[in-house]
């Protein structure tokens, strides 16, 4: 033991030296430097994930913008279609209305014409009776026989009839 150099106080001295060395290193080197290294790692990790997040955000906002654009385009198309359809409908309804109006107008005009004609015919017939009587008076005054008289009246009536029909 002695030849080898084993010595109890020395052993204890080495143990104490080692423990003190470890304590000092722990307090002034390991702890602060490991803390700083961890902090840096954390910081870098954070930076990386922030960059990743920003990239993702940019990508997603790009997609959102694209989507919005598409939406707007679709909306515009829809509005355009709607307007076109509305104008089409409006035009058709207007045309229909115009046609109906025109028809109504024509109808009324026709009815007016008919009424005018009927009135004219009535007038005519009335005046024709007068005319016939006048003619008859004139004929009578000219002394006519009975037969001629009859024929004349019939003829006049037939003429009047055909007149009414025509």
């Amino acid at each position: 033991m002695v030849e080898l150099g084993i010595n109890l106080p020395l052993l204890i001295a080495y143990l104490v030296t080692f423990v003190i060395l470890m304590a000092i290193l722990y307090q002034f080197a390991y702890k602060p430097l490991m803390g700083a290294m961890d902090q840096r790692t954390e910081r870098i990790q954070e930076g990386l994930s922030a960059a990743e997040r920003a990239r993702e955000e940019a990508a997603s906002s790009q997609a959102a913008i694209e989507e919005q654009l598409n939406e707007a385009r679709r909306e515009g198309q829809r509005l355009l279609d709607q307007a076109r359809e509305a104008s089409q409908r409006f035009r058709e309804s207007e045309m229909e209305r115009a046609r109906q109006e025109a028809e109504a107008f024509a109808e009324r005009a026709r009815a007016d014409i008919q009424r005018e004609r009927d009135a004219a015919l009535e007038d005519l017939r009335a005046s024709f009776g007068d005319l016939a009587i006048t003619a008859a008076e004139r004929v009578i005054r000219r002394s006519l026989d009975r037969q001629a008289h009859e024929e004349l009246i019939t003829q006049v009536l037939e003429e009047g009839e055909s007149l009414r029909r025509g």
Binding site: T17, L21, L25, F28, A29, P32, Q39
Partner: peptide, 21 residues
Amino acid sequence: AWVASLVIILFFVLGARKKAM
């Protein structure tokens, strides 16, 4: 051993002193 410990302490404590980012 003490000299070596002193050198170790100097080396590492100086290295860790600033804790710069």
